[in-house]
């Protein structure tokens, strides 16, 4: 038990970071971002992440993004011989190596589901992340939206379903790092963000740190009920994850195993020595409308 807290928090936190940040929409090269401003629009909104779960792989299928623009199999040295998945819609090349890691991690932590750890952290107000959509002139279609990802603080009200209620108001975290992504788009109610570099503030159990993520990509669909459902994909640097882990007081014998596991599942950012330096991940996101105190 003494190991579980920091280990779980580290792994979950790292994977959240990885999932929420890399880029690539199913193989299409990103279009040049329009020049956007951060001027307020008439339909600016805030999306609170009230549910974050790891997308799991099943029979070669997984939701997510083609982060590297390649369709890889186990023979592809560029991805360190990690095979990609196919999305439920049939798109090949989905990068989500974390889904391979999940069973191992959960077995090592006594069968505790990481999704439950994340959800608990959200429900008790520890892990509250929000997207601020700024410069939205049309809630359904706007080619030029600025997105700010920031941690927020407050004690969320839970509904009768045990989930964070929509429509709540939170404070911005004065100590939290804010990532600003310009050039996001809204198309028929679908929000596309990235690829972009994002700093992801994470607080789970007793861990609090920020992870830097390159090429993060997000796609959220705005439902008639006001919800925002979708996925976040991205890669997270193995080196940074190890650095964070070293600050979490993880016992040295376990730390060695963590490093081996992370390196062995890395599939992005191959270096000159032929080693991949990042791990791809995808998270399913359940977002609801929220407000921030001014």
């Amino acid at each position: 038990m003494t190991r579980r807290g920091p280990t779980i928090s580290f792994v979950a936190a790292g994977l959240v970071a990885a999932g929420s940040l890399h880029a690539g929409t199913t193989g299409c090269a990103p279009a040049p971002a329009p020049i956007c401003t951060q001027a307020p629009g008439d339909h600016d909104t805030v999306i609170l992440f009230r549910g974050i779960t790891f997308t799991r792989e099943s029979m070669g299928t997984s939701a997510g993004f083609d982060l590297d623009g390649r369709v890889s199999d186990r023979g592809d040295v560029t991805t360190c011989r990690k095979a990609d998945f196919t999305s439920p819609e049939g798109t090949a090349g989905i990068d989500n190596q974390v889904s391979q890691l999940l069973p191992i991690i959960e077995e090592q932590t006594g069968g505790l589901r990481l999704d439950d750890v994340l959800q608990t952290a959200i429900d008790n107000g520890q892990l509250l992340l929000a997207f601020e959509l700024v410069g939205v002139d049309d809630p359904m279609n706007d080619p030029c939206v600025t997105v700010r990802l920031r941690p927020v603080v407050g004690t969320p009200l839970l509904g009768t379903d045990g989930r964070v209620l929509p429509g709540q108001t939170f404070d911005v975290d004065p100590m939290g790092e804010v990532s600003v992504v310009e050039g996001a788009t809204l198309t028929d109610g679908v929000l596309d963000v990235g690829p972009a570099a994002i700093a992801l503030p994470v607080q789970i159990l007793d861990a609090r740190f920020t992870l830097d993520v390159e090429d993060a990509r997000v796609r959220l669909v705005h439902g008639d009920d006001g919800s925002w459902q979708g996925v976040l994909g991205g890669g997270i640097s193995v080196a940074q994850m190890i650095e964070v882990a070293q600050g979490l007081n993880i016992p040295s014998d376990l730390m060695g195993a963590v490093m081996v596991v992370l390196h062995s599942y890395a599939d992005l950012a191959r270096d000159e020595a032929g080693d991949c330096q990042s791990i791809s991940a995808t998270l399913a996101v359940d977002g609801v409308s929220a407000f921030l105190y001014e």
Binding site: L157, P166, G167, Q168, T169, S289, F291, L292, Y293, E294
Partner: peptide
């Protein structure tokens, strides 16, 4: 109530 009304509290 603010959450029910979907307004800033």
């Amino acid at each position: 109530l603010a959450a029910i009304y979907e307004v800033r509290a």
